[in-house]
Design a protein around this nucleic acid. Structure first.
Lengths: 340, 340
DNA sequence: TTGAAAGCGCTAACAC
DNA sequence: GTGTTAGCGCTTTCAA
């Protein structure tokens, strides 16, 4: 039923080889006569011939496929990165297969196996971020791979992420310069680089002004909203002396906002708040949120361009690490506290 | 270099056919001896054999691929739908190829061609929504396809979308029952079903209380924020008598919020606002937004399950249309106006 | 200038 | 129980 090259060739009265050559623009190099070329192209169009890509892939050992795996495709941050890769791929006639690991490394591993079986030529992965052996193996196997966001320091892979520590330090500087000394932290997924480095920045920022870390001021277990909500409730209950909250993600901040509201603490007036990572509507929130803004666009485009460059037949580029700048956006969610 | 079935067969001392059968669980039906089966499986594991999927696809005429095309993968609404399809696909060992049409029908057409060439077994499309011929052709070609969101009434395709008209009517009822009679509309992409039907609901809602449509009260050209912003500026300038705004999308509403703020109209007090489509943080906005909430989850899951059911070898299901319920969430962005 | 034939890696009749 | 063979649709030697 489907129109194969064979049918085109028959209809045009030539062999499949000639048909193939004519349609792939090899007419010149194979000295195919003007007339034949035209005839083949014409019948192909007339019959509505479309080359079967899997067959082509098998023959050419080249699928034109790029794999993308993220922990949550519905999260705007990861959706943005997926989009950047997709657009870059499309412009070079590649297609993107996406996988959603649901924040589960075991699932991530399974997806990556699938994608390798499907012979993707390269991979962009936003890993769950707690294990990396499987990612190294992919690279050793010869498939170009770039990681984004949840990266691994000291691991020999091309990676792009934000300046988490610097950003967190800036956040702490802002908070402490406003007089805050008892600062609660709503953390994300422990063990991941963004979380770890943001905590490091937090500590460094406090150390700078002579405040020691107090583990009872850190709560949370994930980057999502419910973690932020629970952490805030716990923190504000156990430590009513807290004057400011540092949320390590936007959803964490939103959960915090909701919990604070329920507990009768008005953000800004009664409780300052700064969030790592901006949201497009942060300025339209009940109190415009002061944030440490990640450059998602930049991260996505960088990851995309790194992977496109690594595509065969190009040489596998040297392994590089990229830390994209973050910037503090001051809005109204932080106020000064005065110590009596 | 890669481990093929051939190598496994050689290493196990059997023919490729036996190896194939043993590894595909056909041992029983082909009466392969216990020992042979074990031996083959063992060497396969030992050598790290992974079956080449494109080759399999070619032989079986079955790629295990599902195509998804949306107008903007970074838009949380479409990201959500893509995710629902991806998760459903993964659970059946299918993979999803995504395409981003960038709100451009020409590009959408190109992407769909690509996907067909790659022999996807089914398609979920959130079309740009202004043309549908190419979508019908896909179905006629025999590829199962379901549309979501920007659907086409009276077109013989399986489609799932929201109850746009009912939702808009509800919105208008709420507004008019609060005394509003001069209501500006921030519209989305003209010609698309969501836009058209929401406008119809708007008109019907007004008619019910004896208000005629005034075209000078409708502005905007897209579902994005900048359209909402521009439309609001224009509307509030030309018609200062407007007491309420009906935004046909969340981004439109956000643009409206920003413009209103700039023009010194305080939302709720000076200007009521209702938005079609909720955002997860609508309740945390500067004034908690009253919205007509679409059930994105439901839309995504419905589209996903419809497409999974349509996969061969199942019979192509009858063409069905699904209008997912919307519900009004009353928050604080609408206030009563009193007429003197 | 064109065609015949091999083969990418895999599966499934069909034969033994 | 197992092996031989054909062939999915395509590209590309190689020979003419």
């Amino acid at each position: 039923m489907p129109i194969t090259l064979r049918k085109v060739a028959e209809a045009a009265g030539v062999s499949v080889s000639v048909a193939s050559r004519a349609l792939n623009g090899h007419a010149k190099s194979y000295r195919i006569s003007q007339g034949t070329e035209e005839r083949v192209k014409h019948t192909a169009r007339q019959l509505g011939f479309r080359p079967n890509q899997p067959a082509r892939a098998l023959r050419l050992q080249k699928t034109g496929l790029i794999g993308v795996v993220v922990p949550d495709l519905a999260n705007p941050f990861f959706a943005s990165i997926s989009r950047a890769v997709t657009l870059a791929a499309e412009s070079e006639d590649y297609c993107v297969i996406v996988g959603d690991s649901r924040e589960d490394t075991r699932h991530e591993i399974r997806l990556l196996k699938q994608l390798q079986d499907r012979q993707v030529e390269a991979l962009v992965v936003c890993p769950v971020g707690q294990q990396y052996r499987h990612l190294l193996e992919i690279q050793q196997h010869g498939t170009p791979i770039v990681l984004a966001d949840r990266t691994f320091p000291h691991v020999e892979l091309t990676q792009v992420t934000s300046q988490h520590q610097r950003g967190a330090e800036k956040a702490m500087r802002l908070l402490t310069s406003h007089g805050h000394r008892v600062i609660g932290v709503l953390q994300g997924l422990p063990g991941t680089l963004p979380n770890t480095q943001r905590l490091q920045g937090h500590r460094a920022g406090l150390k700078r002004v002579g405040i020691a870390i107090d583990p009872t001021l850190i709560a949370g277990h994930n980057f999502n909203e419910s973690s932020g909500y629970q952490a805030t409730r716990a923190l504000l209950t156990q430590r009513p002396d807290i004057t400011a909250l540092f949320a390590l993600s936007t959803p964490n901040a939103m959960g915090g906002l909701r919990a604070a509201q329920e507990m009768g603490r008005k953000v800004a007036q009664d409780l300052s708040l700064i969030a790592f990572d901006d949201s497009p509507y942060a300025d339209l929130m009940q109190v415009p949120l002061t944030t440490v803004c990640q450059d998602v666009e930049q991260i996505g485009q960088l990851a995309a361009s790194l992977i496109m460059q690594a595509l065969p037949p190009h040489l596998p580029p040297s392994i590089t690490r990229h830390d994209v700048q973050v910037r503090v956006i001051q809005r109204d969610s932080i106020t000064k506290v005065f110590h009596s």
